[in-house]
Design a protein around this nucleic acid. Structure first.
Lengths: 231, 231
DNA sequence: GGTACACAGTTGGTATATCAGATATAGTGT
DNA sequence: ACACTATATCTGATATACCAACTGTGTACC
């Protein structure tokens, strides 16, 4: 799994950070479009032409439509009947709403992961921590940085051992990452944010639930503050 | 809105407790099937024949399939490729996982609702509280009882003013209600559980955020305990 | 300048065809 | 005679093509 994650991340391809076993065309379309949405290849408010996307991804319109339906459930796109589908807009209240949820659930996930990690994902998390620690933040590009960010969070969610929690956290991590990308060039302390991951991962791997809880909360709240500071 | 909720609830029909404006065939199918799943007209593990459902609901197979896709996202059905779709099974760990999430988010929603309710939904929530207080629990049937339960929670989620929070809470309230229905006849203190709603609604309407937070947490945890007691 | 009609584009729904997988049955070999 | 393998059929999933309904916009006419 660790090797798998690493391969996916360094290759910096559309990838699936989800543990999808096989992948139907609809799944592939979903991942590809979601990636474009998060990484802002499709910017908030942009109209989405399913026909164009279908040609782009070399699939029919049906899997694209299905993917868009799922993305609508994820609140990454909105569809106004008979007017078209668009990438969802983003405003300051969305950030507050999402952070409110994440401030509750990220610490929970970190705590549960810490409680379990000593027995299960200890090595994997340590591994991920040291990889990020030795990352040259100034050298790698934004997309890859974001993928590391996503990879860390996904690893924690998975380690928490609660599939439902994983579901909902992935959902809001995607949304948060999208906001992150939106302000990435204006953000002064990106490497700091990434650095926090190392501490958090280590705390979890060490089984220090209280500390993991605190760090995760700070991580979410700090993220919100950082964004608010540059608005 | 209050009148709307009431109408929907007393009519005890498939209904949409969501604020859906119009409704495509797929939406209608989604609501209808979800209802059957939650109320256990379709029991956990049951195979789901989309063709049969389509005929049953008088729509084509496509909207049914789309509804099933959405329900799969809600974890109410699972689809094993080339074997069929089934209502998801339920086990004890699911209850723990869901309660873990709800124990974090229900209090948050109650708190936020309390912070806002004095200005906004005060009357509506008071109204709902007194209606439930005067409900004769021994007289009405299980399905209607469940609808009241759902209506209360939905009203609180809505009052919290965070659409994302509403999303995720609805999702897990559905799952929890399904578990509730599964043990409904074995549960001794159903009316107590319903009674807690009155207190909670009153606390929110009064703007007592701390108390609302506590009551909501107890409500969730008490629910889990009650179920565990009869397993 | 305003209103009405028409056309185009988009969504939503359905039907059909193709593809893949699983299971059952039959045949052959040991 | 029994077991194993291969093939065929059936079921279910997926993709594409087609159709209908509706909305929005533009143009023309009053």
């Amino acid at each position: 799994m660790a090797a798998n994650l690493y391969d996916l991340v360094v290759s910096a391809e559309p990838l699936d950070l989800d543990s999808s076993a096989v992948a139907s065309l609809a799944d592939k379309a979903y991942v590809a479009i979601r990636d474009r949405l998060i990484m802002l290849d499709i910017r908030p408010g942009d109209p989405i032409d399913d026909d164009e996307l279908a040609g782009d991804l070399d699939v029919g319109r049906t899997p694209v439509r299905e993917a868009l339906k799922r993305l609508e459930g994820d609140r990454l796109v909105v569809s106004y009947p008979r007017r078209g589908t668009f990438a969802t807009g983003m405003d300051i209240s969305d950030l507050a709403h999402i952070s409110d949820i994440r401030a509750q659930l990220e610490p929970l996930a970190a705590r549960r992961a810490a409680e379990r990690a000593v027995r299960t994902a200890h090595a994997e998390l340590e591994d991920l921590a040291s990889r990020i620690q030795h990352l040259d933040v100034s050298q790698i590009d934004r997309t890859e940085l974001m993928r590391w960010d996503l990879a860390v969070h996904r690893a924690i969610y998975r380690a928490a051992g609660n599939p439902h929690l994983e579901d909902v956290l992935i959902r809001y991590d995607n949304l948060a990452t999208r906001i992150f990308c939106l302000f990435l060039d204006r953000l002064p302390t990106v490497d700091e944010h990434v650095g926090e991951h190392v501490e958090l991962l280590r705390a979890i791997a060490a089984g220090d639930a209280d500390r993991a809880d605190d760090l995760a909360r700070e991580h979410v709240l700090g993220f919100e503050q950082a964004i608010r500071a540059v608005i």
